[in-house]
Design a protein around this nucleic acid. Structure first.
Lengths: 347, 347
DNA sequence: GCGAAGCGTGGAACCGCTCCCATGCGGCCT
DNA sequence: AGGCCGCATGGGAGCGGTTCCACGCTTCGC
């Protein structure tokens, strides 16, 4: 009995090639290739015979060889700044990945995860991403000053961002309606009869932070409330930053009765600080967070928070990227996804 | 001025090949290849001239072409059951990835993230993983009954697991010292003078859950305390499961003074239930969790918990895998990493 | 002074696949 | 009946690298 006959044997050693399949099926290489790629111009007989040979041999196409000629890799990279992964202990990270992965899988594509350290040089990374390993690039947590997206664009590598770097972003991206979400939050506080509403921002070199602050202003404006700049405290999305900002706010405005924090983590810091100063939440001061992260459900009291459709963002990003890969050159697009308010006990 | 002269122009269009580099440098293709791969048998002059040509042309090697002949892809897959990603909102997921990525990057390798849905068939996935796209496979959250690791082993694809499926696991893996961590936790409770110590387990079809239960028994045994089976409640790592289990325990043992929960989430459920029954934590009942997850820091009171070195697990897994890839065939290995107790206010 | 040894080098062969072209064949139209 | 058209097919060329072999040159030993 010839050694190569058994599928399991064949799989264990060197794997069979298309040529071997052709030989076994008694057809030419072209025909096998056509069957594999689902070309319509194959007779039923050939197709059957080839499919059987493939099954018997346990043949799996060599993707490297294929991509060498097709110039496609059928995989895209998801670039994540390493510093952010800690922040991503939040559901954010996994939700984005789940969304991206679902869309990609549906298109038969693979996901390459690239963590990049802050200090790593962009040129090296860019050359990595252009080394014919990926068809496109997805980036999350891009900071305002990040030039990598431009670099990739120069290299004509299809790119899609989660969030934009500033309000004139020219690279394709998907983001949540941050200002809309903030308006929702502040309007909710107004509806509850709160009048002295403070806010704790995120780092303002991030567009999300700016947009959420804008929403805060807009909501007050359109309610006819004058924005008191002293009610705006600057945070950095961390718990400690939230505490510090809250401390400052209480000093300047001991009688404030509500706080809109630009992130749940910040909000949880604010809650801690409020309690330390003898304020009850929500009785004395109502608090609304942003992100609807796991923290929101575990603070005491649980946080009212603005939810963004993260998984859908991932899904949409992948979709946009696939579009760009297919019809290269066509202009970039931006998609804004709606946010919603999840009401819990803190406001 | 010839169009191909400018690096940026060249980068934008079709990318230069090794042959073009050779032509420009005035050497043969072999020599360019040697320079790129750092072969010692190249004259200084050739090296200089080639390096300049590479820089001028903005040349980046085509990895597909390389891997076609070297039979290496320099990338590995991390396989994650999709159902688990939600659970991975915990730092676990990102910490593993960070560890894996760090080790891989150091070795110049790439990480392919593969989320697999429960219902997806293994054969398809396996053929994916064998299609010359990855050199090896890392798997997290493998359940007892999962046969994919065996399948991969049959196909002689190097594989390393996070955790083992059972105590006769034959595939290489890395795990935390779960029973040791449980012993630590229970001993801590004993040291605090607690005598009626209950435990809430995880799903016992998972090795981690079994190991943590074993540790509980061992700690009591070696302290000369007889294990009362009524003090063992079965949970499923969820908060609701923790509440239910706690409810049962309180019915059977109203006077218990401590609980060791096999996960923080379970523990947080237990704390909620205890409070609902008017028990104070830790005054009446001390609680210890497991995982030292973000939940542990946000419950009230913050949880004493067993920490496992997750990032290091990722790092070690990648290391083991790289070993297996290099010296194929040599036997598998298992590595057990130590756990430690993080004492907070709940015990 | 001559052969052996050694080093740097160029280039052919090949990795496994897709693409395209040439070929053969049957069926349809005139 | 003869000529065309179109479809299924086989196989050559080539994708962009690496590897290996043969070759020329220099250096060294006797």
């Amino acid at each position: 009995m010839p050694a190569a006959e058994s599928p399991s044997r064949a799989a264990a050693g060197r794997r069979p090639t298309l040529t071997e399949v052709a030989a076994r099926a008694g057809v030419g290489r072209g025909t096998v290739s056509r069957v594999i790629n689902g070309s319509p111009n194959v007779s039923d007989h050939s197709r059957t015979v080839v499919e059987r040979a493939i099954a018997e041999l346990g043949y799996v196409p060599n993707l490297a060889a294929r991509s060498l000629v097709t110039r496609r890799t059928d995989s895209v990279a998801l670039v994540v700044p390493e510093a952010e992964t800690r922040l991503f202990s939040e559901p954010y990270f996994s939700a984005i990945i789940r969304g991206v992965s679902a869309r990609l899988t549906a298109a038969g594509m693979q996901l390459l995860l690239v963590l990049v350290r802050e200090d790593e040089d962009h040129a090296k990374l860019a050359s990595y991403l252009t080394s014919h390993r990926v068809d496109g690039v997805l980036m999350v947590a891009v900071h305002s000053g990040d030039t990598l997206p431009d670099l990739l664009e120069d290299l004509s590598v299809p790119t899609v961002l989660a969030g934009r770097r500033n309000d004139i972003e020219h690279v394709g991206h998907v983001r949540a309606d941050n200002s809309g979400g903030a308006r929702l939050a502040v309007r909710h506080l107004l509806d509850k009869g709160r009048r002295t509403i403070a806010t704790i921002t995120g780092p303002l070199d991030m567009d999300v932070a700016r947009a959420r602050l804008d929403g805060y202003r807009e909501a007050l404006d359109s309610a006819g409330v004058t924005v008191d700049e002293d009610l705006i405290a600057y945070g950095d999305f961390t718990e400690e930053g939230g505490r510090a900002a809250m401390r400052g706010l209480l000093q300047r405005h001991p009688h404030l009765d509500a706080v809109f924090a630009a992130s749940d983590v910040t909000a949880s810091g604010a809650v801690l600080e409020l309690r330390a100063h003898g304020r009850r939440v929500p009785d004395d001061v109502a608090v609304v967070g942003f992100d609807d992260s796991i923290v929101a459900r575990h603070t005491d009291p649980p946080l009212t928070s603005v939810r963004q459709p993260i998984e859908e963002m991932g899904h949409t990003m992948a979709g946009l990227l696939l579009d760009e890969i297919d019809r290269r050159g066509k202009g970039h697009r931006e998609v804004i996804l709606p946010t919603e308010l999840v009401v819990r006990e803190s406001a």
